[in-house]
Amino acid sequence: MLVPSKLVADFKGTASLPVIYFKLNEAINDPNTSIHKISNVISEDASLSARLLKLVNSPFYGFPQKIGTISEAVFLVGSQQVRDVALATTMMKTFTGIPGDLMDMEKFWMHSLACGVGAKVLAVTIGEPEFERFFVAGVLHDIGRLVMYSKASEESKVILQRSLQERRPMVDIEYEEIGCSHAEIGRALLDAWKLPQYYQEVAAFHHSPERAQQYPLETAVVHVADTIVHSLQFGTSGELYVPRMQKDCWHKLNLSLNQLSKLMHVIEHEVNLILKMFQIQEVAA
């Protein structure tokens, strides 16, 4: 039986939050901060600056005018939102050394980004103004799997194999093989990284959204987005099967069937744009 916090403690030595996140956090929390100071921090990282500018000029935001500078981007998007988006978009470089026979990292990030975009599109549709945090929560929801693959690789092989043979979801077999799930490991990692509670809760309960106490809407949105992007076959975090969507979650979003098919087309379109932006190749199902 493995304990999530122990796995995470072992793992923390090999993967830490991108430095830019701490620098941005510091700049945001500084009482004398300004858009200029925050922009300077971002500008120090050329690849992040380029990615941020691409993102704010894409349909992801849909601003009516071209945004040419980082300070305009920070002004329009908001400094905390920029910090969160920077986190999600630099996360990919954080995880190295995951055994290739266990997980194709390109497919993993494709699934993560797609779930983020799906959550963002759903959040916009139901009228949630702060859609960035839905995006980031979606990107981070399966992060515990990477810790699991890295720190319990032999057990992970058995979990993947049993899931295929027994036709059961990985999450159920995770409990049997290691005594906890990737969802709990994800929460422990985000907690160790001191990321906000709503990211922790979404990661912890995206397979059991009825247990989300503080952020049931965020959790429901990511749960539904996860099911949608699994159906559309955008990458994978290892799971072979489309998750069972909980009816209560779907009803919570108050969407019609007619809206669902349109939303799926919008999600597909936006995911393809984001994947192109992040230079991740779409792999045909």
Partner: peptide, 23 residues
Amino acid sequence: ALETAFTLVDKNWDVMKELHRVA
């Protein structure tokens, strides 16, 4: 091609039927 992926879902629920159709 999608048969395995949709093994575990509730195929009688309209929402999953629609998801499957669009997928």
